[in-house]
Design a protein around this nucleic acid. Structure first.
Length: 415
RNA sequence: CGGAGUGUGGUAUAAUGGUAUUACGCACGCUUCGGGUGCGUGUAACCCGGGUUCGAUUCCCGGCACUCCGACCA
C-alpha cells in the first residue's frame, strides 16, 4: 500500500496518557486509537497485525480439528443462572444491560454457557465425540482497573475454544493435543523460548489445576515460579508445599519470574454440561456426562506483548510472522524507480508499504524505524546510479546492497 | 474499590486572579533534499458544573476523565 494514501501518521511525541511502552509506541505509530481506558480501536496498520495473529491461531486450532464458529455478545440471563454464574457475587466483572422490556442481558465475558447450550441441540451420541469448537471474538470485562495498554483491557479480542469428550481419558488426549497447538502458536509468534506452561488455579468449579501459558516479561502482572530444567512453572497463587508435592516439583529448583498470561486452558469436567442438562447416550443407550475443556488465547493482548517485548529505543520491531507488511519501501527522490520497484514487489506477492511521500530522508527513516516493518528497502539516487538497493533488516544496524532485479526474489526467500 | 498524581490548540508543553508561551503538526510561499533542513506568513487550546471575586484557565468545592500503586482478575 502507498503510504501517501494511509490516513494515519506517525507522531513524534509520546502520548501523555499512556505509561506502558506497548501503548505508547502503538499509538505513536498509528496502529491503535485509544477510545477510553482499556478500550482501543485498531487502525489499518494495527488491524493488519491483529489479523496476522488471528490467522496463526486459526491455522493451529484448525490443525487440531477445531471448528470455528461465532457466538453472540448479548447473553440471556437464564443459562447463566443454571450454572450459578449470573449473580454479581459469583462473577463481578460482568457488563450487564436490559432490553426495553426490562429483561436483563449480559455482555459476553466468556462463553461456556452459550456454547454448551448451543451444541446441546446437536449432540446426543457417543459417536459425536470428541470435538472442539472455537471462536475469535471481542470479550467484555468490567475490570476494576484497566492497565498497561493492550495487556489489560475491558474490551479485548480473544480466541476461546471448547472441547467436548465422552470421558475423562478422551478429554485428556484432546487437552494435550490442544496444549501442543498452543506452543506452536507461541513459537510462530516468536515467543516460544520465553513462554512456559504454568500450573495455576483451576477456577471456581474444579479442583484440578489449570494451565496458564506465561510469557516472561518485566511488565507482566503475574509472578510465576519457574523450574528451568523442566521448563515448567507454577503460578504464585497456588504455590504451597502441598501443591508442589502434588506436582512433583522441588521448591529449591524454582526461580520467581514476572510474566504475562498469554493463554489459559481449563479442565471443566462435566460442571457446565451437567448444569445445562447436555449429555449423550453411550453404546448401551445409557445417559452419560460430557467432559469439557476450555482454552483461551488473548489475541489483542498478544499484540501488546509482542509490541512491548520486541521494541527498541527507535520503535516497534515486529516479528515477520505478524508484521503489518514484510517490506517498507522508501523512495528518496527516485520516484520512478521506486514506483517500478513497488510494482515488482506487488507482483511478486510481497506485502509492501511504500513510502511515496515527499518527505525528508531523515523523517522517512525515523518513521520506518518506529513502524517496525522487518525489511526496509531504500530507493534513492544511489540506487538509480548503482543499480542496487539498500536492504536493511529492522533488527540489524547494517544494510546490504542488493541488485534491483534480484530484490523480489531476495525478499521472498528471506525468512 | 482504597491511595497518589494529572487535566491548556490535533500532539507535546509554559506561564498566569485581568483570555495564554513554545515546539511539532496542518495550510501557503521560499529553501533544502540519504537520518526528523532552514526561514516567513497563517491555522488552532484553558475537561464539566457550582462557589469566592469587579473579573477564575489560575483559588475553593463537587463531578468526570486519564495515569500509576494497591486490592481484584471463572
Amino acid at each position: 500500500m502507498r503510504q501517501s494514501q494511509l490516513f494515519t501518521k506517525a507522531r513524534r511525541e509520546t502520548p501523555k496518557d499512556e505509561e506502558s511502552r506497548n501503548a505508547q509506541l502503538l499509538i505513536r505509530a498509528g496502529f491503535i486509537h485509544k477510545e477510553m481506558a482499556g478500550v482501543y480501536a485498531y487502525l489499518p496498520l494495527g488491524l493488519r497485525v491483529l489479523e496476522k495473529i488471528k490467522a496463526i491461531v486459526r491455522e493451529e486450532m484448525n490443525a487440531v480439528g477445531g471448528q470455528e464458529l461465532m457466538m453472540t455478545t448479548l447473553q440471556p440471563k437464564d443459562i447463566w443462572e443454571k450454572t450459578d454464574r449470573w449473580d454479581d457475587s459469583k462473577v463481578d466483572n460482568w457488563f450487564k444491560t436490559r432490553l426495553v422490556s426490562g429483561a436483563e442481558l449480559g455482555v459476553g465475558l466468556t462463553h461456556e454457557e452459550p456454547i454448551v447450550d448451543a451444541i446441546g441441540e446437536y449432540v446426543s451420541s457417543y459417536r459425536d465425540f470428541p470435538f472442539s469448537v472455537y471462536q475469535i471474538q471481542n470479550k467484555f470485562r468490567n475490570e476494576l482497573r484497566a492497565k498497561s495498554g493492550l495487556l489489560r483491557g475491558r474490551e479485548f479480542l480473544m480466541k476461546d475454544m471448547y472441547s467436548f469428550s465422552r470421558d475423562q481419558e478422551q478429554h485428556e488426549r484432546e487437552y494435550e493435543r490442544i496444549v501442543e497447538a498452543y506452543f506452536r502458536v507461541y513459537g510462530r509468534l516468536g515467543l516460544g523460548d520465553i513462554t512456559y506452561r504454568t500450573h495455576a488455579d483451576g477456577g471456581i468449579f474444579t479442583s484440578r489445576f489449570s494451565d496458564e501459558f506465561q510469557t516472561l516479561t518485566e511488565v507482566g502482572e503475574d509472578v510465576i515460579y519457574l523450574d528451568e530444567s523442566k521448563g515448567i512453572a507454577v503460578n504464585e497463587e497456588i504455590l504451597t508445599d502441598e501443591n508442589l508435592e502434588k506436582l512433583g516439583l522441588d521448591r529449591s529448583a524454582l526461580v520467581p519470574k514476572k510474566a504475562v498470561e498469554v493463554g489459559n486452558t481449563f479442565h471443566l469436567e462435566s460442571k457446565y454440561t451437567d448444569a445445562l442438562g447436555v449429555s449423550f447416550n453411550d453404546e448401551k443407550g445409557e445417559n452419560q456426562s460430557i467432559v469439557m475443556g476450555c482454552y483461551g488465547i488473548g489475541i489483542s493482548r498478544l499484540m501488546g506483548v509482542i509490541a512491548e517485548l520486541f521494541a527498541d529505543e527507535k520503535g516497534l520491531v515486529w516479528p515477520g510472522s505478524v508484521a503489518p507488511f514484510r517490506v517498507h519501501l522508501l523512495s528518496l527522490g527516485a520516484d520512478d524507480l521506486a514506483d517500478e520497484t513497488y510494482r515488482a514487489f506487488s507482483e511478486a506477492g510481497i506485502e509492501v508499504l511504500y513510502d511515496d511521500r515527499d518527505l525528508r530522508a531523515g523523517e522517512k527513516f525515523a518513521e520506518s524505524d518506529l513502524l517496525g516493518i522487518p525489511y526496509r528497502v531504500v530507493i534513492g539516487k544511489r540506487a538509480a546510479e548503482s543499480g542496487t538497493a539498500e536492504v536493511k533488516r529492522r533488527t540489524e544496524d547494517s544494510a546490504v546492497d542488493v541488485p534491483l532485479s534480484d530484490l523480489p526474489s531476495y525478499l521472498a526467500q528471506k525468512a
